[in-house]
Amino acid sequence: MALLEVENLEVAYGVIKAIKGISFSVEEGEVIALIGANGAGKTTILHTITGLIPANKGQITFAGQNLNKTPGHKIVSMGMAHVPEGRRVFSQLTVYQNLKLGAYTRKNKSEIHESLKTVYKRFPRLEERKNQLAGTLSGGEQQMLAMGRALMSRPKLMLLDEPSMGLSPILVNEIFDIIKVLNENGTTILLVEQNAKKALMIADRAYVLETGTIALTGEASKLMDNDSVKKAYLGE
């Protein structure tokens, strides 16, 4: 059974249907990319999965449990962490306080400390700046903090929403390298990206979204060679 299973999901903002019956699945250990233009509904899907907005129809199942009736704040302790679009770090708190909040649902102090050390090892910049207010970090550092904060919950599945947004090409490469490493260390990844090329390069499979429906799906390497994908998303 898939780690995350989304079936016939429909989401509306008022009368406007943003997601019109979407089904997809994420198997354990995979990197899955959701690509598509602005307004295709990528972020809406992630927000619905983690309970920030309610679904109108359909089923979301994570690790065998139905998420439709689960309150948003209970989802992280089930093993799913969401790195939201625009990072959404707590800018008035320090890097350290942000990371501690990432482990909010965990109780064991020594285990939390272990996770903190692991995050610092993966993102040495965060350790250097641990007492700095998160709002004073650069965009790339904030992205690392947002990812580190999510890792503090020791997620089985990490949802990443536009991690490359607003970053310089070098930083984009760095972030994608980190995503690959995280996946190799056992974290399943659901990645939402406008940078389709980058996303397809690290993904196992991908779904192409167009105005609330899935237009295409398949292995990432095959989608890269697909003519319509090339034209619409890869700029070739």
Binding site: T50, G51, L52, P71, G72, H73, K74, I75, V76, S77, A81, H82, P84, R88, V89, F90, S91, Q92, L93, Q97, K100, L101, G102, Y104, T105, R149, S153
Partner: peptide, 20 residues
Amino acid sequence: QAMLAVSEDKDAAKLMGVNV
């Protein structure tokens, strides 16, 4: 700390598992 998180960003606080 949950209060500080909620005061800054309710949705992000929820994603941390804070009961807003």
